[in-house]
Write a protein that binds this DNA or RNA. Structure first.
Length: 190
DNA sequence: GTAGGGATACACT
DNA sequence: GTGTATCCCTACT
């Protein structure tokens, strides 16, 4: 399991460092997990694309707290997205988990997603939340303990990492704050 | 390429 | 309190 200090850094450092780590959710006795292959960094009041750009609200309040907690939000009438709070307490930055490579609990993921192809299970932020059973009940959970946490891979591998502009935003569209493993088959887009 | 979906934020009474 | 524009998307055509 990762330490608090891992998250207590700039989201631009944490984001690429999260690639290859394992996101795990244990729910109703079912454990699902996946290897992180795509993320995006969101700064606080310097970043017009961030939910925390303007002010603290009921929705974004967890971003203003200490790092290592889950910021989960509902959007487009049907999807949840999972973020990791980063930076110092009060900094309001986060990293959006955009895609995973499924590891444990693939059967449960297929049932939740109503899909059978593995590539359709977790290849997008809304998809992976549904596959892992992440919803508003996960808002504000401490990612250093069950039922939702992030762990290190067995070996300290290094990966080829690429970066690009973020996806789906209308503000600050040119900033290259998306990080991904270009060789993965599970990206939200190539 | 676009319809669908509902919570949210913020500007107004 | 109410109105409305927007949204870190997905699944379909």
């Amino acid at each position: 399991m990762l330490k608090r200090s891992f998250f207590g850094r700039s989201p631009l450092i944490v984001a690429p460092d999260l690639l290859g780590k394992i996101l795990v959710h244990s729910k109703n006795g079912i454990r699902t997990s996946g290897r992180i292959v795509e993320v995006e960094a969101y700064l606080g009041n310097q970043d017009p694309a961030s939910h925390a750009y303007k002010r603290k609200t009921e929705r974004n309040r967890v971003m203003f707290g200490p790092p290592g907690y889950a910021y989960v939000y509902f959007t487009y009438g049907s999807h949840f997205c999972m973020n990791v709070v980063t930076g110092n307490d009060g900094e309001a930055s986060a990293v959006l988990i955009r895609a995973l490579e499924p590891l444990e609990g693939v059967t449960a993921m297929k049932r939740r997603r109503k899909k059978t192809k593995e590539k359709d299970l977790t290849s997008g932020p809304g998809k992976l939340a549904q596959a892992l059973g992440i919803d508003r009940k996960c808002y504000g959970l401490d990612l250093l303990k069950k039922p939702l946490w992030i762990s290190e891979e067995r070996s300290g591998n290094t990966y080829k990492v690429k970066r690009s502009p973020r996806i789906g935003i209308k503000q600050a569209v040119d900033l290259p704050y998306r990080f991904y493993l270009p060789d993965s088959d599970y990206l939200s887009r190539p």
